[in-house]
Amino acid sequence: MVSKRFFLKRLLLLVPVLFGVATLVFAILHLSPGDPAKVIAGQRATAEQVAAVRTELGLNDPIWVQYGRYLFDIVTLNLGDSYIVRKGVPVLTILRARLPVTLELALYGQLLGILFGIPLGVLSAVKQDTITDHLTRVGALTGISVPIYWSGPLLILLFAQFLGLLPASGRIASAYDVPVYTGLITLDSLVYALSGGGFGAFQSAISHMLLPAAVIGVYSMALISRMMRSSMLEVVRQDYMRTARAKGQGAKITIMKHGFRNATIPVITVIGIQFGTLLGGAVLTETVFGIGGIGTLLVNAIEVGDYPLVQGTVLVFAFLFTLVNLGVDLTYSYLDPRIEQ
């Protein structure tokens, strides 16, 4: 079991993690060549106007004063207003609306990856060096080699353009106006359906989700199945397995059944570490499918130099990444009794 003290200690570590990320973001934004005052004042602004904005933003204060103010703002959750992308709107409001979109995408993608990746990896290991194994391995390698920004368009071509089965972009047909409860569109439309709004919106949301989730899912599946295969084989190779293996192929499969739990442990860790890659994949997937999550938000913000928005988005990314790995760590400690708490 995971003790309360263990849990609290981990949770408390989020503070230095975010403090560190915030400092890094501060440093990176100050190293970048853009000038926020120029960005806000606009391209046609006079030198005086830019100077006025500089004073207003406090950019003339000593750098350590700026750093202190920046940290204070973050602690008080005052992330500022967007400069350009959605001018004047508080960053927190934008993030609150956009975050669930990405979260939902990552969640479904990860789920597909785990559901297919683990069985495929096990199959590949059990049937080591057979044609099944080779096919699975080449398949996984192809899954990693094919970029999301190509497999996505291919799926759109096949399912939306030629077959006309699924929608090509967006999250839900524009005809539906589902009230926002959680921001997760499949969940919201389900609640809406159950409260008597009809299942049309739910169906639409699911059909919009299928392609982008599949694109992310294939990538994550490829990674997980490769890891699962090597982990299973590693377990078999270990000493206590060696004796059992000597008894023949049948015994090997039995042993693998027992080894499964041990083999999943490193895979869980990999899932946690790969969550960041998944978020990177989400950035690309959102761009391909025209889904407005925090991935496209970050790209837009960097492109135009919307500094408060870049800060906010990066902090959210870091927070998510840490949270997922915290969850992985807890699952891990639960599964592996050797870890002292």
């Binding site: 570590l13 503070v15 230095p16 993690v17 403090f19 560190g20 990320v21 915030a22 400092t23 890094l24 973001v25 501060f26 440093a27 990176i28 100050h30 190293l31 750093y67 840490t322």
Partner: peptide, 13 residues
Amino acid sequence: ALAFGFGLLGWSG
């Protein structure tokens, strides 16, 4: 700040 933030993040990580 770059080194400080990196160290802090790495330490807690």
